[in-house]
């Protein structure tokens, strides 16, 4: 109880995520998440996962991809907590990104965004 005061954000995330205070992966608010196509054959199933992980799997499980921010909004969890939970699920092979991340140069990306926005403007 003594000693330096802990950062309450970290304490909260730590408690919620069963001992993790930092995500193991560098996930962004817009990182897309889907359930893994071939989850590992082990006795860890969504039913036996901690509650938050189970809820993330329930949301992303069968329906399609969502971003970290969308998962946070639908499950009413802080994005920082979702990042930790999703990192764990990815490490365990239960969750994945929608496709092997192809790297597209930023300039092409901006061009793609521009085309899409121009299509909206007509």
């Amino acid at each position: 109880m003594s000693g330096p005061r802990r950062d309450p954000d970290l304490v909260r995330a730590y408690v919620r995520t069963g001992g993790r205070s930092r995500a193991t992966r560098d996930l962004d608010l817009v990182t897309l998440v889907v359930a893994a196509k071939n989850p590992p054959k082990s006795n860890v199933t969504p039913q036996t996962m901690p509650p938050d992980a189970r809820r993330v799997m329930g949301l992303c499980g069968r329906h399609g991809a969502l971003s970290v921010a969308e998962i946070a909004a639908y499950l009413d969890l802080p994005p920082s907590v979702v990042k930790i939970v999703v990192s764990d699920l990815m490490d365990g092979g239960h969750a994945d990104s929608p496709a092997p991340a192809e790297t597209v140069p930023e300039l092409s990306m901006l061009e793609e965004v521009l085309h899409g926005l121009r299509a909206l403007a007509v």
Partner: peptide, 24 residues
Amino acid sequence: MGSALSRSEQVAYVAETVTRSVKL
């Protein structure tokens, strides 16, 4: 704790073809 799926009818998933994302 409520079921994660209780609101799934209203969840707007990204299109199946979408594999990348950016933000502004």
